[in-house]
Amino acid sequence: MDINENIEHIVKSNVDLEKCLTNRDSKDNITFGSGVKFSDPCIVGIDEAGRGPVLGPMVYGLCYYPLGKESIFNDLGCADSKTLTDEKRKDIFQKMCSDDVGWIVEALSPTFISNNMLLRSKYSLNQIAQDSTVGLLNKIISMGINIAEVYVDTVGPPEKYQDKLKSIFPEFKIVVAKKADSLYPVVSAASICAKVSRDTALTTWVFTEDFEVSLEEIGSGYPNDPVTKKFLKGNFDKIFGFPQLVRFSWSTADKILEDESFCTEWEDVEEGASEKTPNILGFFKKDPRKKEHTKHEFFKKRKLMNTENL
């Protein structure tokens, strides 16, 4: 097996995973994987972790192995990933760092998520999710993985999403289903990669800000976790809001901002709302404003004016 040039970070153990997530700028997205290659046609599973939490990255996991090799999962024991303990999941993840199964993960940073949802022209969470899924599939395609079947877990309506993915990858058999992680072992395995990566990303988080918070104080990141709630309230700044660990665009964070921070006013992006079509009769009327002494266009454009008062 050769190390793959398409994946920036190769991870071969839980220790590697910790290293890879610690030694980076936590505001950036990161992609890492096992780099394992197969020549036989593969079955692929995709799942996400951390869509709900207000803290930390949202993680997409993709798992692949040759068709007909499902038996390896009997040994791994990851049938229902949601019921497993954190320790058990880490254990399985360690076993998945073998040459029998391949995986790749993308962690989308909270800053990336907030920034995309707060662009001038908004980029929705579903679109972010879809782009990450398509990106991971393209990554393993460029690694030379021969994809035959793809199983994807979804939170939204599966039909629409399935049609969308089929139109992008018409050559594969694609199945999008709710709770796919309990139906297909390959999705279950993908969910373990995603979940372990998300948990590790949270416990190894490095604050870019001049911040001293022990990582036990941040909790699970779920909005209803009392530890997370306390962290949000306690580490709040009336001007800047929260550190970059927080998804500002989430309603929990947004509500605290709205209620407790100094109000900010941003440029209105709704185009054409202020400019009404002028009434034709208006052209024949005297415009009272025209009499006023108006500044030259040069100054208007630059918003320069004389100041007499402060």
Partner: peptide, 12 residues
């Protein structure tokens, strides 16, 4: 490459 970037209150 695009100059300086930062996130302020979630805004890019």
């Amino acid at each position: 490459s695009t100059g300086l970037t930062v996130s302020f209150r979630g805004h890019p």
